[in-house]
């Protein structure tokens, strides 16, 4: 069997066949995967990943005023009046940072977890900061954000694997994300979580995330928010019905299970669920060093 399909993520809109369209779409090609490779399954879901991570940022900083997912800098300045939009150079107006936190005056670029993503993220964050800071009239200048990391477990309809979206801010302003999956086919997310067998993941990182989620949960509780509780677990439930994401992963799963590749039809009952999972006690040791971006070999 010749590995998974080459897939290209699309940022918006339904697309038959899961192919990217239009010059504005950011595409991340995933090379055909060698089934014998120990390389973690890397899927770049583009828009869906960005939206999920941005949402998690809003959960972690609920009282912050922030702009997410491609609002242009000129509009951010125009809406908030922290500066003068007319001070932007013409080609800077439409620059769109992934996360612009007005309250804390930090920004983040969200990129796939590999060398190219890191380099692009670094360059873009720097460009966006220069542009933003050119306009500022009120308050501090922006800097690259730090200390933003986390993960979400996701089970897609009919999928027998549990997928994991993980992100780390490896250097100021650059947040790298990756998708991995459970090594085994598992019936339940609880089993996946307990088994803890993720490709390319250490138990220590699981503990870190437990602490982080616990903190976010506690923040939410302190604001008297209700949380869904599912058999003792606390967490977030999100219905992820990104049509392109659905098509991409369905095709990938079909490829992985050994049936014909290139299945393009979405499952009849689409969608997925973000899985709540049990909290763990916060780690007593200081968090491990944020890993540097893993570089992806060009061929394998």
């Amino acid at each position: 069997m010749n590995g998974g399909p080459a897939v290209v993520a699309e940022t918006t809109g339904p697309t038959a066949g899961g192919q990217a369209s239009g010059p504005t779409v950011q595409g991340y090609n995933v090379p055909g995967r060698n089934p014998d490779s120990r390389m973690p399954w890397q899927l770049f879901l583009g828009g869906a990943s960005h939206r999920l991570i941005a949402y998690m940022y809003s959960v972690h900083y609920p009282d912050t005023r922030a702009y997410y997912n491609k609002e242009p800098i000129a509009a951010i300045i125009g809406e908030t009046s922290i500066g003068r939009a007319s001070l932007l150079l013409p080609d800077e107006r439409q620059l769109r940072p992934d996360i612009t936190d007005i309250t804390r005056r930090v920004l983040f670029e969200i990129k796939p977890w590999h060398e190219q993503g890191l380099l692009e993220g670094r360059a873009e964050a720097s460009t966006y900061l220069t542009a933003l800071n050119r306009t500022i009239l009120i308050g501090r200048h922006f800097t690259g954000g730090t200390d933003f990391h986390g993960e979400i477990l996701i089970r897609f309809a009919r999928g027998q694997y549990i997928w994991r979206l993980e992100w780390r801010t490896s250097e100021p302003g650059v947040t790298l994300y990756r998708w991995t999956r459970s090594q085994q086919r598992l019936e339940s997310e609880a089993a996946a979580y307990e088994a803890g067998q993720w490709t390319d993941l250490s138990v220590e990182e699981l503990h870190q995330y437990g602490g982080w989620v616990e903190k976010a949960v506690q923040d939410m509780i302190s604001r008297r928010e209700k949380l869904a509780t599912v058999s003792g677990a606390m967490g977030l439930v999100i219905d992820l019905v990104g049509e392109t994401a659905r098509v991409v992963l369905w095709g990938a799963l079909m490829g992985q299970l050994g049936t014909s590749t290139g299945a393009r039809q979405p499952p009849a009952q689409g969608g997925g669920q973000v899985i709540p999972f049990p909290t763990r006690p916060a780690p007593t040791a200081p968090p491990a060093q944020v890993p540097a971006a893993a570089s992806m070999p060009l061929s394998h």
Partner: peptide, 19 residues
């Protein structure tokens, strides 16, 4: 609010897009 509009493919009222 835009940040919770995760499902772009669903036809729905998107008041936040007045911005």
């Amino acid at each position: 609010q835009g940040v919770v509009d995760i499902q772009h493919e669903r036809p729905v009222w998107r008041l936040y897009m007045v911005s």
